[in-house]
Computed example of a mutant assay.
Amino acid sequence: MPELPEVETTRRGIEPYLRDHVVMQVIVRERRLRWPIPVELVQALRGQRIEAVERRAKYLLLRTRAGTAIVHLGMSGSLRVLPDATAPGKHDHLDLVLDSGQLLRLRDPRRFGAVLWTRDDPLRHPLLAELGPEPLSAAFDGARLYRLSRGRRGPVKNFVMDNRIVVGLGNIYANETLFRAGIHPLRAAGRIGAARYEKFADVARTVLLEAIAKGGTTLRDFTHADGNPGYFRIELEVYGHAGEPCPSCGATLKQTVIGQRSSVYCPHCQH
């Protein structure tokens, strides 16, 4: 699944081609995504100028004066900017044809993505209204994590992956951040002190910024808007390396399942 760095990479990739351009036509080949593509979107978006391409958590927001298209890439979705004469493939479900002679194409083999429409403030949409702060914003810090973790007995990995606590720390980046911060993923969230949460917040920013700079992580389906893969995969220190030596101490990296997700950690460095 594309995580925050992959979605931000996509946003940066498509923004120059979309911003200030008019949507001339909306072509829907398959409405049945995670939720049906609204009929209203086809009518409302046609003829509108895209004024901004923003991101909130893993959602992309295509803002116009008439309203906002809310896009989620789901498990396997990708967005590409292509010449408007490019023939669609089997899993190409939606095109936004632009006045530039190009189009924005959504490809989603598993159809777990979403394209929704709202005329209201998108940040108040039910999917976005209860989300926590962005991990790269000033609103996210160790003090917040420490405060919200008090009394929690569940694993810290589940806690930091809760989108109500902070958005964008999906499984890959939670693994990497906990490793670099020296925190065992099974440790109870409420038993971690303020200083360690401050370190976690700082490390999380570093990991995410590194991933964005590298263009995101390619594991299965994610590709850039230009079709190139993300390159942060080569920087992953623990995720996908169970049974290998820890890059810090040489101990064998262990793997377990937490919250139905694979977790890799060093039993020596993380406590």
Rank of each mutant, 00 (worst) to 15 (best):
R19P: 07
K199C: 14
R107F: 13
Y231C: 05
A114S: 15
S263K: 08
G216L: 02
H268D: 06
K58V: 07
P2W: 07
G182A: 11
N171K: 12
V207P: 03
E6W: 09
G170A: 06
D20I: 01
L62R: 14
P133R: 10
A57L: 04
Q260F: 09
L219P: 00
P185Y: 13
Y231A: 11
L145Q: 08
N158L: 05
P16Y: 07
D99A: 11
R111Y: 14
W35N: 08
E54L: 15
Y197H: 14
S100H: 06
A87I: 15
L186P: 10
V26E: 07
G170M: 10
I183E: 14
Q48T: 14
I70H: 06
E8G: 07
L136Q: 02
T177M: 10
G151H: 04
I27N: 01
A52K: 09
P83V: 11
P2K: 05
L127D: 13
L209V: 11
A138F: 00
G243K: 00
R55F: 04
F140D: 03
E8Y: 07
I70Q: 05
I165M: 06
P245Y: 02
G170D: 11
A66E: 15
I192V: 13
N171E: 13
A114W: 13
S100I: 12
R191N: 15
T223F: 04
R19C: 07
L98I: 15
T68C: 04
R144S: 02
L61E: 08
G47I: 01
E54R: 13
L219V: 10
D95C: 10
E210M: 10
G154E: 07
H241K: 09
N175P: 09
D226S: 09
T223N: 00
G240D: 00
G193M: 11
R80P: 09
V81Q: 04
T177S: 15
E244A: 05
D221T: 08
P16A: 06
P88M: 14
T223K: 03
E8A: 06
R29K: 02
R205S: 12
A213G: 09
T177Q: 12
R34M: 03
A57K: 05
V264H: 01
E176K: 06
V207M: 08
R147F: 03
R124E: 09
R63W: 09
V257F: 01
P133S: 11
R65L: 13
R31H: 01
E235K: 06
G47L: 00
S137P: 06
R34Q: 08
R12T: 10
Q260L: 08
D221R: 05
P229C: 00
D92Y: 11
R119Q: 12
T218D: 06
I192Y: 06
R65E: 14
L33Q: 03
H21Y: 11
L104N: 05
A242P: 02
A139P: 00
H21T: 10
Q255N: 05
